[in-house]
Design a protein around this nucleic acid. Structure first.
Lengths: 208, 208
DNA sequence: TTCGTCATGTAATGGGTTACATGATTAC
DNA sequence: GTAATCATGTAACCCATTACATGACGAA
């Protein structure tokens, strides 16, 4: 009894906040909507859904039929649609409000950002700034270590390190722009969830 | 009985190839020399070292004294220096020669690149090109998924996706340059290991 | 003598995948 | 009717971290 994951839990709640879904569809969205990071397998997803149900954040809806899929009047089975409960929504809202240090660590930052559309302005700022200083701190360490060991390292290792540092520097610049935009008040409105007619009939099993 | 890790094993063998070390030092090098990726803890490192010993790739040297550390003539204890055996070196050489698909996946590519200084030219090429086409494939999927779902996504998710794609594109350009350089024959010589007097007395516990 | 860092280890736990098992539905 | 994909699940394993336990050495 547990299967807590943090990011997975957060992502599921966030996606279901927008509209109910069944596991299979959920997984696809997990691997696309939320950037490149994390490609969860069913082996993680389904057990997690179960625990979220027992927690009371979700309810299973054993839908005997789907809205109007061309031809289907006879009984349908097995397809379980998960819907966010009021308690679940509330819980998600709480999670969104937290802006502790882990929110800007590598594991969480991506998901957090993905749901910025539902996040309060000041929380967004704290997370962005937290991430930025985290990365700057990292850069400092890298520079220091590089200065200490430069002579000892061969060209390839050096190149790898250089490229790594540039990646981090690039993300810092990106964050600078985002923070700038937020400051300028051009940050997007909170609570937007533009859900227009889902025609989710794409064929690919998108796992980058 | 196992504790196989792949990357950790590879990295340990690679680092010890250059010179014997004890676990503590090994870990520091793991977290700096090998780019930003992976920060292994002792909980992974020491057990792994043990299994590498039982495999015969390493030998423990319970050195009673270190070369010449200022004041120490009486017995010293505990410091275990690991040295690569002939078999271990041979094994590492075999690993270096392999250029299967996993060599250019996210988990392995970094370490593989870090030891390109010991890797044959044609293997380097295959790994670099493999990685590049892997990333291009990924880009295609991302583009396709983006085209399919653009309207449904809010600005933040879109921005996240855009930034993610740019990161991948950037790595592709990097690989292009590297491949170009290798083609031009300006690839660094194989088998270089410029080991000049290790004065490894840096204080920091570098974990980015 | 106390603090920091060097140094080695282990048991419990966590978070995830793989491989497998099952079956319904759709498209040809 | 058969292949692909949709859809749900579980058990066994894997890899690594955390928290803990231990202790030596050097410098203030």
């Amino acid at each position: 009894m547990s299967r807590r994951s943090g990011v997975l839990e957060f992502a599921i709640l966030g996606l279901l906040r927008e509209s109910p879904m069944h596991g299979y569809e959920l997984r696809k969205r997990l691997n696309t909507s939320l950037g490149v990071f994390r490609a969860f397998s069913y082996g993680s997803l389904y057990p997690c859904l179960k625990t979220l149900v027992t927690q009371g954040w979700l309810v299973e809806e054993h839908s005997s039929e789907e809205p109007l899929t061309a031809a289907s009047l006879a009984g349908r089975r097995a397809k379980i649609v998960y819907r966010l409960t009021a308690a679940g929504k509330e819980h998600f809202e709480e999670l969104l409000a937290h802006s502790g240090p882990d929110a800007w660590e590598d594991e969480q930052f991506g998901v957090r950002f993905a749901f910025f559309g539902h996040t309060e302005r000041d929380v967004r700022m704290r997370v962005l700034e937290g991430r930025r200083s985290r990365l700057e701190e990292r850069l400092e360490k890298m520079r220091a270590s590089l200065a200490r060991t430069r002579e000892r390292l061969d060209d390839y290792t050096l190149e790898l390190q250089r490229h790594g540092m540039e990646s981090v520097e690039r993300e810092v610049r990106w964050l600078n722009e985002l923070i700038e935009t937020e400051r300028a008040g051009r940050g997007r409105a909170t609570g937007r969830h533009a859900d227009q007619g889902r025609d989710d009939t794409d064929p690919t099993d998108t796992t980058y």
